[in-house]
């Protein structure tokens, strides 16, 4: 299947986002995989780990996967439901509803990243510099 190709794309996105945010390291990737995305989670992890093992800011990052189901809406009952595989009937009335969400997403929700410096640390550094120049108003 195509987990290698997906892992390559995923890594590009993760590195791009991390760089844009000025992050030093990616700690975790929160990923949504629809139940119909046809992605084998283990294969994806394997390829992602292998691709990041040779020096990437995402090296060692955890892949946190949330699975999302396919969802239907029953117009009769005015209710949403997530049917078991292959049987799309509404659990209440038995009619087949209308598709709301095919559950085939491959989406990066968020990243946990380690930043180079905290704003607090920067402030402290600033103060130290200022301190070196003496108290304000003294000159």
């Amino acid at each position: 299947m195509h987990e290698l190709a997906v892992a390559e794309q995923l890594l590009k996105l993760v590195e791009e986002e991390a760089q844009r945010a000025g992050a030093r390291r990616v700690v975790a990737v929160h990923l949504v995989l629809g139940e119909h995305s046809h992605i084998a989670e283990e294969a994806l992890r394997f390829h992602f780990e292998r691709l990041t093992s040779q020096g990437s800011p995402a090296e060692g990052a955890q892949l946190r996967v949330r699975r999302e189901p396919m969802r239907f809406r029953c117009l009769e009952c005015d209710a949403d439901y997530a049917p078991p595989a292959g049987d799309w009937r509404c659990p209440r009335c038995g009619e087949v509803g209308k598709l709301l969400d095919p559950g085939d997403e491959l989406r990066v929700e968020s990243l946990e990243v380690e930043m180079a410096n905290t704003a607090y640390e920067e402030e402290e550094e600033e103060k130290e510099k200022e301190g070196g120049r003496g108290w304000p108003g003294e000159t």
Binding site: V6, Q9, L106, V108, E114, N117, T118
Partner: peptide
């Protein structure tokens, strides 16, 4: 000195954004 400064970045993009 300072602990790890971990921050949550909202992304909300398709994992295949590069192909897109």
């Amino acid at each position: 000195m300072a602990g790890r400064n971990v921050k949550l970045l909202r992304v909300e993009r398709s994992a295949l954004a590069d192909n897109d």
